[in-house]
Nucleic acid binder design. Sequence first.
DNA 1: TTCTGGCACTCGTGCGTTCAGAGTGCCAGG
DNA 2: CCTGGCACTCTGAACGCACGAGTGCCAGAA
Lengths: 344, 344
Amino acid sequence: MAGEVRQLDDRKLAVLRAIVQDYVGTEEPVGSKALVERHNLGVSPATVRNDMAALEEEGYIHQPHTSAGRIPTDKGYRLFVDKLAEIKPMSAPERRAIRHFLDGAVDLDDVVARTVRLLAQLTRQVAVVQYPSLTRSTVRHVELVALAPAKVMLVLITNTGRVEQRMVDCPGPVGETVLADLRTALNSRAAGRRLPEVPGLLEELPAMFEQADRPTVSTVLATLFETLAEQNEERIMLAGTANLTRFGHDFPLTIQPVLEALEEQVILLRLLGETNDAAMTVRIGRENAYEGLISTSVVSVGYGSGDESVAKLGVIGPTRMDYPGTMGAVRAVARYVGQILAES
Amino acid sequence: MAGEVRQLDDRKLAVLRAIVQDYVGTEEPVGSKALVERHNLGVSPATVRNDMAALEEEGYIHQPHTSAGRIPTDKGYRLFVDKLAEIKPMSAPERRAIRHFLDGAVDLDDVVARTVRLLAQLTRQVAVVQYPSLTRSTVRHVELVALAPAKVMLVLITNTGRVEQRMVDCPGPVGETVLADLRTALNSRAAGRRLPEVPGLLEELPAMFEQADRPTVSTVLATLFETLAEQNEERIMLAGTANLTRFGHDFPLTIQPVLEALEEQVILLRLLGETNDAAMTVRIGRENAYEGLISTSVVSVGYGSGDESVAKLGVIGPTRMDYPGTMGAVRAVARYVGQILAES
DNA sequence: TTCTGGCACTCGTGCGTTCAGAGTGCCAGG
DNA sequence: CCTGGCACTCTGAACGCACGAGTGCCAGAA
């Protein structure tokens, strides 16, 4: 590892940085002459050519054909992101705009919807926002509503404002007092607790009721546990697919597989799932496990109402994207969503 | 009107039908020779050419350049749909598959999600399904949950299984008995009623409470009315955008504006809103009000749990689509969703 | 009257050729 | 270790050309 990097002196890194920047801007392979013109590297094209040859040798850049300019490889982008680029902070007016746009949200659905649209607009790419996960959030309230003699609706409200409801078909008629007792018992034990711990806290609950009511209690509890456990309820919202057409058109990146991937919630969830909670994660090209996304990069980060993240959001774009800007936008949006969630 | 049609004898109509069918299949302008080969029209290419000239004169078909085959115009498709095509019924195995696929749904979200995916898969086009509208459905239950001394959560459950929730910040602390009274009063008056009638039924409700509690009651009611009235809460689910790439590629239809239109819920809602409730509606090309969709056709129909429709669903594809098949699929899916909703 | 076969005409498409420009690698000299 | 120069390579655009598909029209047959 050190061996590789040792060979890249500062000027070669500067050349790589310049190549990435130019290529992202122009979308065309960049040659030695154009490079020295646009960036004042203080050396001649010939020198740059030698550096380029070295960079290509190491696999950071690549030329489509002889006598064409160079384009960065996935490895080149990786180095750029890790060592050469700094996250570009949003400007003050941009931050104000984000804040203002998100502040208007009325409920959780709206927060997520606004966030995803905002992110798509800021980055001009495809944005993905995961709903705050049930697993990490806590119970705010459990409500039981009798709809019919033997039919109860169970409503679970979490601290993130998410509401899940389930119909419960009880084995027999349910008395209103039993329901009230159960409601009280549930809330006193579960409120404020994290969802995964709840089942453990309710184990001996049936034993507290009369023999006749136990089947009902058990049925309700079973449905509640099911709801708590349902990982696949993790939902996702998407926006900005129209931005795909901005590239794709004249590029090896055909949008078909990308669109297909975007329709599969499972794939998106897995994609976001790979995000390292704490820091921002950038997956470049073939680093993405999914075949259809090998020409794209995914920039994602966790967000949350407190200091810990309850869900993730991110952006999907071509590997040739403006990483500093995109990362800046993603980070800023994640922060503000976290604040909004904490307030509500 | 009669004047125009009078000039089109049976054979000319047959030629138009054949042109539409061939063009939909091959995506290439169809010439006179190919036509007589594939369909046994019993006449020579020269005759067909004369008929084609007449059809072109009337504006039903059009040739991209001299010495190219003909393609149908919007007007041609319109005639085809109105007079020449019959809705193609689904085969028994297809119907079974639809039934089976939809039967597995667990809640309303799931029903809609499955429906839209199914429709996209069956037609291989973009499918759109509107959530059952709040306006036409009835109240099944209203629940009030005290979250904090002066904070109440309002949950509205409709007969279509839809659940809407809102936080209510009350002017002062709310007693549990007041809440219970209000809950009872609300449900006894509103349950089973259509959403738009509800506000009228609750007008004198505040007068029934003690002076001190009236501000609270009014606040809750205001939020409830807001929720009932919120037309913009009409949600929509989309699937099959990847199918756009199947055409678009080599066609005057660029997918960009279509993708943009699909991201605008407002546009989709307006599109579906134009659907004639009772019958199936087909909007062809420029018949669509929206600029971005002038190269597409929209096939839509209402669906509902009873005999009246509570929402709409449809398919968006290129004007050169298989109308009989698409209409068959749309009709079949709408029927089965209606059944599922009625059962639950 | 209506259909048919024939014929001249029009274009779009595909293919091979040419040409200019951009970019490279390498080498010898500062 | 950098630089200027030079020969080489390759792509992409432009051009010309021939081919084929398809048409419109006309005169003759049914």
